[in-house]
Design a protein around this nucleic acid. Structure first.
Lengths: 203, 203, 203, 203
DNA sequence: CATGAATGAGTGTTCATTCAT
DNA sequence: AATGAATGAACACTCATTCAT
């Protein structure tokens, strides 16, 4: 019993170490330029050991996002459900997003950089974006029911509008090497989403 | 004299053919998976010839965007200058952007997909983004002077907000393999930028 | 005493299981492509366990044939000794041989076809053999027309009979490292093909 | 013209050198144990060069036999066509075969090795074969004592003659995946051994 | 200028073998 | 004795880059 437990912890530990080392190297070098040897070195295991835990190099990336996705979307869900108004929901979604990326900068770097390509990833990333857009759509609908969001919206476009803006703000933060507080961007961004940049008189 | 002239035309032609072939292959395979041989084949030149015109693989990409950047920003400039109001300037900037990408889908694919990583590219893309954001800032200022744009804006954020949204809409179009008209997204997007998604009553 | 006995049975059992699993995997994959892991899995033991019973992968093969050889040659001996005439002895030897191989097809596959597998070659070698047999068949027919070859022949068998004999003579020469003149074997071999080994009086 | 010619000769030369080096290394180490590096070294080219001429390692083998097969079968054809009687045809076919193999021993080694089992099993198979041949020899002697077997036999050859034929028949059965009864081949085979394929009148 | 054959460093992946438990 | 996780050497194959012609 004891041994099994230790063994499992060992396995888990090694799995996690490889995962972490992988993301770290991916962040530093890019997925393509990263080598198994470097990941192994950073994880403190032999090259071959990686293949006991992962199918191949891409699998490290895929599994990482697989794991994180659930965790992060659970946070998003919770954040949204704790809010009363659609405005607050939107704010909390975006805040959570920024928090999560700020907490794990290596993940953020890899996500922002690799997300638009990599065939192995493609499906996962698309899933992630799609799920994110679903949350936005849900909030929009709530807001429309509440009457705080316009009803004459092309939802498909609005989803991209919001996702794109948030994504770009995160990306800028990543490229700036995280030297300022990302989460503080959430509030002014939500304001822009709701009120736009036009002055009230504009109509 | 005559021969020099022809020779220059030849050079130019070969240079352009390699550039075009490069982007075509980059769009198809991704920058990393693209090989010099495939680009050479598609350009109708020998592998070694590429090194007479370009430093290396990444250089093809860099030079391509270097060239297109000037051309495209000239279009942007012209589009903006032809407009009277800030709103129209913004609309024309975004329309031109979408038109340019719609006209050259291969460029769009490469730009959207490869832009965020590639350390070699990074600087160029950053330049492009920075110049784009400068245009936005300029329009914002004009709009504020005109009184149609709010004065209580965090400009740095607004620039990302607009660039990010446009970029995401373009990206969606690229991933959808260009099956719909991208430019028609410009008008509703500008409306979102100016009025936001909030209902008038929200204040 | 009791435990030792059980332990011995256990050992024997495990040893046999590995042996059997080895041959099974060798038959399926070929000796080179077979992996220790697959043999271990099929034997229901751990990879490392195999090394408690065998020196290495090749040793499994060697020990298997070591064991079977004694057993099969005992059968051959018995078969021969039970026969009265040389003709019957020969018949019984060959019958026993065929029976033994027919009974244990995996062994037969490993023994006969081990290397025939190599994918690149497989088809070519088979083609070559087939073409060679065609030539033989053609000659047989000519000979039958000429009246110098018996008409009561099972041609498919005769083709193998001749090809096999020639092939074995060549093979022996190869293994002997070519230390004698191979071509001088042709004439006596043809004589054997035509007249057989039986004395004229035999009928 | 001159240059093209030289270039072609160069190409041909390098192709042939790699082919030859390949067969040489295959003969020495066996196809599986042969490495591209060793072949390249022996051919005096870089590893990568091999891939300019061949698809992969196996392709070297395949192309070699592709080339030789036509050449050798042309010889066979010629040998047969030059003969008047079926006996002579058979003799010349077999002689040509042996000549061809004797002329190119490396080819013979590779062909026999890939076709039969020289490498992995070598020593054991040799032992087994030797013991089998001993049994045959014993039977031959008995038969000679009985007077049913000719006394003018080159025993060493007869042993190969019988073993080879039986082996080939078994082998055919194995490759046919055992879909017919092997043992029923024993009787007609013994008949061939004793009487040969010649008609009685032939003497 | 142009070529394209040649190079060889570099990488992902496999697997026989070991050894701490 | 048995395990099976860990190891790391080995190898086929790719491809950017060079350079003799």
């Amino acid at each position: 019993m004891r041994e099994v437990s230790i063994s499992r912890i060992d396995r888990q530990d090694k799995y996690q170490r490889i995962l972490r080392a992988g993301i770290s190297v991916f962040a530093r070098r890019g997925v393509f330029r990263a080598t198994i040897s470097e990941i192994a070195r950073e994880a403190g295991v032999a090259d071959g050991t990686i293949y006991l835990y992962f199918k191949n190099k891409d699998d490290i990336l895929a599994r990482f996002f697989e794991g994180r996705t659930e965790e992060i979307f659970a946070r998003f869900r919770k954040a949204i459900d704790e809010a009363d108004t659609a405005r607050d929901k939107l704010f909390r979604l975006i805040s959570s997003h920024m928090e999560a990326f700020q907490e794990d900068r290596e993940m953020a770097v890899v996500f922002q950089a690799e997300t638009r390509k990599i065939h192995a990833m493609a499906c996962h990333v698309n899933d992630i974006s799609a799920r994110y857009r679903d949350l936005i759509a849900e909030i929009i609908e709530d807001g429309q029911a509440e009457g705080i969001i316009r009803k004459d919206l092309y939802i498909a476009l609005v989803k991209r509008f919001i996702l794109g803006a948030v994504d770009e703000v995160v990306n800028t933060w990543v490229l700036a090497e995280g030297k300022y507080d990302l989460v503080s961007m959430a509030e002014p961004l939500v304001d822009l989403f709701l009120r736009g940049i036009g002055s009230a008189s504009e109509e």
